[in-house]
Design a binder for these strands. Structure first.
Lengths: 335, 335
DNA sequence: CTGAAAGCGCTTACAG
DNA sequence: CTGAAAGCGCTTACAG
C-alpha cells in the first residue's frame, strides 16, 4: 500500500514535522490552533486514513479482543444465542475503540489443547470465552498471560473472572412460581453433567423443592442430551408430574411436542416452563413461561471487565451474576 | 508488553542475528538445518509468540477482512441467518491466515454515509458486505479503494462483484413445482421493493406464471413488510389462491398461522412454500417445502473472491449465482 | 509551539 | 549460509 497517504506526506506538504501532524490529528497539546486546523483540513483533503497498526506496533496493543466460542455452541440452529451475544459484544467494543475477533474453537483444537492462532500471533489483547469449554482447556487458557473473562459459564476450580446469568436463583424463583400455582409433582429436564448452567438451574429447582418439603425423585430428573450436547429423545416418566422445569426453551419445545404426541395437552394436563426466552419460547404452543437472559448486560460486563483488566493486570471481578427476568406466558396452569 | 520475547531475544541468546531467526522460524532459505532446529527449539522453550502486527506493518496488510452487516439484518430474532454466514466466513478466513472482523452498520451511520471505523483506521484489507445496503451507501462504498464483495445482494447500477443465491431460478422452479401439482391460482407474498432477493424471487415466480399462461393478478402480490423491513400484518386476498409462494420461511410461517386463524388448513385448503430453509421451515406445522440456501458455498466464494482481489486489484468476478436446492416437505397438496 | 531522534518487531534486499 | 542496514507509520520523551 505504497499509495497510502501518511502523516509524513501531510507534514512534507506543509513543511512541518510528522510529530506536529501527529499531535494535531490526535488533538494533543503542543500545536498552534491555526496550524492544527490547517493540518486537519489537508488531511481531509488528501484522504488521509489513520494507521492503527502503527500505533498498535508502538504500544504493543492490538486493540482487538478475541471472542472464543466452542464449535458445539456455534453449531447450526442453536447458534443464534451465542452469536447474538457476540454481536452485542462487538458493538460495545467498537464504542470503546476495540474490535472483536470471533474465533470458533473446533472440537479437535479443544481436545488437543491448541490455543487459538489469534493468541499465537499476538492478534488480540484479551479473550472473552463464550460458552463452556473442557476442564483441560480451561486450565490451558488460564496459563496464558493475557486478560480473559468467562462468559455464560464458570469453573469452580479456576479463579478466572466469570459472568453468568443467575441461573440458580432464577430457576429457584421459577419453581417457586409453580408451587404457588398449586403444583407439587415437579420434574426437571436437563443433563446435570453437561454445563454449569444446567447444573445450577437444577440446583435452584432443587432448593425450591427442599423449601417446599418435597423429596427429590430420581425419575423426575430427566436427561435431554448426550455427552456431546446432542439432544436425545426425552423419556417421559411413568407417572406424569404436574409440571416440568426445562433447562432451556428448545428442550421445553421438544417436550411439549412429545407430550402432545403422547396425548397430553399443555398446560391443561401438564405445565411446562423453559429458560432463555429465545425463539423457541414464542413458537411453542402455548408460548412458554421462561426466564429472559439479559444478553446486553452480560455483554456489557464482559467488555468492561476485560478492558479494566487490560488497564490493570491485577484487577479481578470474581464470579459475577446477572439477574434473569421471569416472563410469564401461557404454559403454566393454576391447579 | 515489554515482557514479550522477540526474535531479537532469541537471536541474542544464540549469538546470531534476528534476520537468521526470522528465516528459521518462517522456514525460509538461507539458514543451516542444524541452526534452524536450534532456533525453533529455543523459540518454543522461551515461549516465543510471533508478532503478526510487525509483519502487517511492514507489508501494509492487516490480514483482517471486515464483514459489514446492516443493523436491520442483524436485529433480534431474524439475525441467525446472517450471523451464521458470518460465522462460516470467519472459519474459512482463518484457514487462510485471515481474520474476519464483524461490523454492524447502524441505521444512522448508513443514513449519514459514515464509513466503518475499521476502514478509517486501516484495520482491514477488504470488505464483505453482507446484506442489502442503501443505494447511497453502495455508492459510498464503491468509492473506497480496497477490495469489496457484496454477499446475498447486488445492485444493478454498481459493478461490484456479488454473490447471491440464484433466487430467480429457484423461485421459478419452486413455482413450476406447484403447477406440476395442479395449482393454477398462485399468489406471491413479499415486498417487491425491499431487497433484490425478494424482487428476483418474485420475477422467478412470474416467469413460471408466464410459461404456464397465467396472468399476473395485482391482488395476488401480497405485501409482507414496510420500508424499514418490519413485518406487517399480512392481508389475505378476497378469493383465496390454491397456493402461496412466500419470499422467506418466516413470512410463510406467519402466513400459515394467519390462514389457520381464518379457518383454513395447510396444505388441505391451501398450499404454502417458503424460501431459506431456516428454523421457521421446520417449526411450521406442516413443515415447509422451501429452498435451501447454500451458506457454505456463498461464504467460500466471498472469501475466495476477496482474497483473489487482494492479490490482483483488477480481478473481477461479476454477479455470481449460487444454486439453491428445493427441499420437499408437507406444505404442498397435490390437486 | 515545534521537531530530531529513537523505537515498536518484523522483513526485504543486498552484501559478504 | 549469515547478517548489517533500512524501512513499514506512528508516538514518546526530550531538547530547543
Amino acid at each position: 500500500m505504497k499509495n497510502n497517504v501518511t502523516m509524513r506526506d501531510i507534514a512534507d506538504k506543509l513543511g512541518v514535522s510528522s510529530v506536529t501532524v501527529s499531535k494535531a490529528l490526535n488533538d494533543k497539546e503542543g500545536v498552534g490552533e491555526e496550524l492544527k486546523l490547517k493540518i486537519k483540513a489537508l488531511a481531509e483533503q488528501m484522504g488521509y486514513r489513520y494507521n492503527a497498526m502503527a500505533k498498535s506496533m508502538k504500544e504493543g496493543l492490538s486493540y482487538n479482543i478475541g471472542v472464543i466460542i466452542p464449535e458445539r455452541f456455534a453449531g447450526t440452529e442453536q447458534s443464534s444465542f451465542y452469536l447474538n451475544v457476540y454481536k452485542s459484544i462487538t458493538k460495545i467494543l467498537e464504542n470503546k475503540g476495540y474490535y472483536g475477533i470471533l474465533n470458533i474453537l473446533s472440537h479437535s483444537d479443544e481436545k488437543q489443547l491448541n490455543l487459538p492462532r489469534i493468541y499465537n500471533e499476538n492478534k488480540v489483547d484479551g479473550f472473552i470465552i463464550l460458552g463452556q469449554i473442557s476442564k483441560a482447556y480451561i486450565q490451558k487458557i488460564q496459563e496464558i498471560d493475557i486478560p480473559k473473562v468467562f462468559l455464560d459459564f464458570y469453573d469452580e476450580h479456576a479463579d478466572i473472572d466469570s459472568i453468568t446469568t443467575d441461573n440458580f436463583y432464577a430457576a429457584y424463583e421459577l419453581t417457586n412460581y409453580l408451587f404457588r400455582n398449586g403444583h407439587q409433582e415437579i420434574a426437571y429436564v436437563g443433563n446435570l453433567y453437561s454445563t454449569s448452567s444446567i447444573q445450577d438451574r437444577f440446583l435452584g429447582y432443587y432448593k425450591s423443592l427442599l423449601e417446599h418439603g418435597r423429596l427429590l425423585k430420581q425419575e423426575f430428573i430427566i436427561n435431554d442430551r448426550d455427552e456431546e450436547g446432542t439432544y436425545i429423545d426425552i423419556k417421559l416418566p411413568e407417572t406424569l408430574p404436574t409440571a416440568f422445569v426445562c433447562n432451556c426453551d428448545q428442550v421445553a419445545h421438544n417436550l411439549v411436542q412429545k407430550l402432545n404426541k403422547a396425548g397430553y395437552k399443555v398446560p391443561e394436563d401438564c405445565s411446562v416452563v423453559g429458560f432463555d426466552n429465545d425463539l423457541y419460547a414464542t413458537i411453542t404452543d402455548p408460548a412458554l413461561t421462561t426466564v429472559e437472559v439479559d444478553i446486553e448486560q452480560m455483554a456489557t460486563n464482559s467488555v468492561n471487565f476485560i478492558l479494566e483488566k487490560l488497564k490493570d493486570k491485577n484487577k479481578t471481578f470474581g464470579r459475577v451474576l446477572v439477574k434473569g427476568k421471569i416472563i410469564y406466558r401461557n404454559s403454566v396452569q393454576k391447579l
